[in-house]
């Protein structure tokens, strides 16, 4: 479904060039759930943005469904760390935003998408909140709205950039388990960035470990624990412990000192 061959990304930063990614070869199967894990600044977001077509690689090729990626695709959705809801829109109209941007065209009519939106809101426990404004919701609920929005076009591929990392631990677990449940009902390929080992093990069919500076593919770990998985007591504790330990080792191994990525300035993004 997603295929990266020799992908590299070099940025012209303020202090010269930054090699964010180098020689990434990755093949994600249809319907697979892959988590990307690595320290901050190792190029996880960059990798997702490449797949999303938000930026184009300085070397190598990115393909989705066999086609080279040239820009954002309708069947690929992107979910951010923050809910990224438009504050003046109600919950329902935030979920409908992608359809509105398409101009209501596409395979179904707008009414059908509206039904779908209600269905998704029900699935994520947001029934009754359709008319609320984002600021009236808790962080977890806002992120659920964001999840509904990224599902409204029935995407083939969902790219999720640390979507739950800004939430408190309980909400986070809840949402992870919910995502797993939703995923089991849909034929979607998911690439999910996280820096939580627990989350990676809970969600992934495969965990991809990146190393920083420059970002390289360090290891790919298969996880064969049957679903649905839970974080609490379960029959596979030893397996979970083994994989967690392995990932810990891969992440903690001494590599070049890691700097936090420089926060990006708002005014770097000007209207096109």
């Amino acid at each position: 479904m997603i295929r990266l061959d020799g992908v590299g990304q070099v940025f012209d930063g303020r202090e010269g060039q930054v090699t964010a990614l180098e020689e990434i070869d990755l093949h994600v199967q249809q319907n697979e759930f892959v988590t990307l894990i690595g320290r901050s600044g190792c190029g996880k977001s960059t990798l997702l943005r490449l797949i999303a077509g938000l930026i184009s690689p300085t070397s190598g090729t990115v393909r989705v469904a066999g086609d080279p990626v040239t820009g954002p695709r309708r069947d690929v959705s992107f979910m951010f760390q923050r809910p990224a809801l438009l504050p003046w829109r109600s919950v329902l109209s935030n979920v409908m935003l992608p359809i509105e941007i398409d101009g209501g065209e596409g395979d179904r009519g707008k009414a059908a998408y509206r039904d779908r939106a209600h269905q998704l809101l029900e699935l994520t426990g947001l029934t009754g909140f359709e008319r609320r404004l984002p600021h009236e919701l808790s962080g977890g609920m806002q992120q659920r709205v964001s999840l509904c929005r990224s599902l409204i076009r029935d995407p083939q591929v969902m790219l999720m950039d640390e979507p739950f990392s800004a939430l408190d631990a309980l909400t986070r677990t809840e949402l992870s388990e919910e995502l797993q449940r939703i995923k089991m009902e849909l034929d979607t390929t998911i690439v999910f960035v996280t820096h939580s080992i627990e989350e990676a093990v809970l969600l992934a069919d495969r965990v991809v470990v990146l190393t920083p500076r420059p970002g390289r593919l360090r290891e790919v770990v298969d996880i064969d624990i049957p679903r649905p998985r839970t974080l609490g007591q379960n029959a596979h504790l030893t397996e979970v412990a083994r994989i967690s330990g392995l990932l810990h080792g891969l992440l903690a191994e001494k590599v070049a000192p890691v700097e936090e990525p420089a926060p990006r300035q708002v005014d770097e993004v000007r209207p096109r």
Binding site: P72, F78, F80, R82, A84, L97, I101, V266, V269, R272
Partner: peptide, 22 residues
């Protein structure tokens, strides 16, 4: 305008006009 909202609209393939007005 928060950067993640700009990126959101770009990831949805919004036109410049849409990005401006919406």
């Amino acid at each position: 305008t928060p950067i993640e909202l700009v990126e959101l609209l770009r990831s949805l393939n919004a036109s410049r006009t849409q990005e401006f007005f919406k």
